[in-house]
């Protein structure tokens, strides 16, 4: 059975935010919502300081704590192991956001304009807002879904497509011969916060 996952090679990622922008463009998320984000971290002391980018998204855990705490069953695991939110069932309690150790959840209370000084939404924003309300909803929890509607067409998630350094690889974790499985095996792939026991399906190859 297919179990979708992703590998992010931190040696290749240079923190250009192309993934974050591609996700925004594809999913048309409201201001302040970043299903794909890039965190920056530093280590060492002058003059041997190293800066590193860490792209994060929903880890689509095998044992997702967001799904465990969801009181209505709105958070579910779809075929392929993709964790999704059924917006009609979500009550907007934010418990999933509190339970997710990866900060992958977003609550959208209001679709504000991208323009400053309280400017009204533009015609395009009104169109996008309507689309957002139909797909994800207002007042409910939202998150990355691995661009799951593209997968049956054989297309990759938008962040994977957009990465100029080819740092992201998407595929089937259950296929031992898939590129993603080989990369995890050969490149010492590791997950974030393994001690929490969520079993994320997004792996990282170490930066050095």
């Amino acid at each position: 059975m297919t179990r979708y996952g992703m590998v992010i090679d931190l040696k290749r990622c240079y923190g250009c935010y192309a993934c974050a922008m591609a996700c925004k463009a594809k999913n048309r998320t409201p201001p302040g919502v970043f299903w794909a984000r890039v965190l920056k971290g530093e280590t060492g002391k002058y003059p041997t300081v190293v800066r590193q980018a860490l792209p994060v998204l929903c880890m689509h855990c095998d044992d997702p704590s967001c799904q465990t705490v969801c009181p209505t069953g709105a958070t579910q695991t779809a075929p392929g192991g993709i964790v999704v939110v059924e917006k009609e069932k979500c009550i907007g309690c934010s418990y999933c956001k509190m339970a997710c150790p990866y900060g992958a959840r977003y609550m959208v209370e209001e679709w504000e304009s991208y323009f400053p000084d309280g400017a009204p939404r533009s015609t395009y924003e009104e169109y996008v807002k309507k689309e957002w309300e139909e797909k994800s909803g207002i007042g409910v929890s939202t998150k990355c879904d691995f661009c799951m509607e593209r997968l049956p067409e054989g297309r990759l998630p938008a962040c994977v497509n957009a990465c100029p350094a080819n740092a992201r690889t998407f595929g089937d974790l259950d296929d031992p011969l898939s590129e993603i499985s080989m990369l995890i095996k050969k490149g010492r792939g590791a997950v974030l916060q393994p001690e929490l026991g969520n079993d994320p399906k997004v792996y990282y190859l170490p930066p050095r």
């Binding site: 280590t43 590193q52 860490l54 150790p101 990866y102 900060g103 974030l192 170490p206």
Partner: peptide
């Protein structure tokens, strides 16, 4: 929020 640790780096997600 909990910090995300990877290869000696600590990343803090912004709420």
């Amino acid at each position: 929020a909990t910090s995300l640790d990877m290869a000696g780096f600590q990343f803090r997600p912004i709420a």
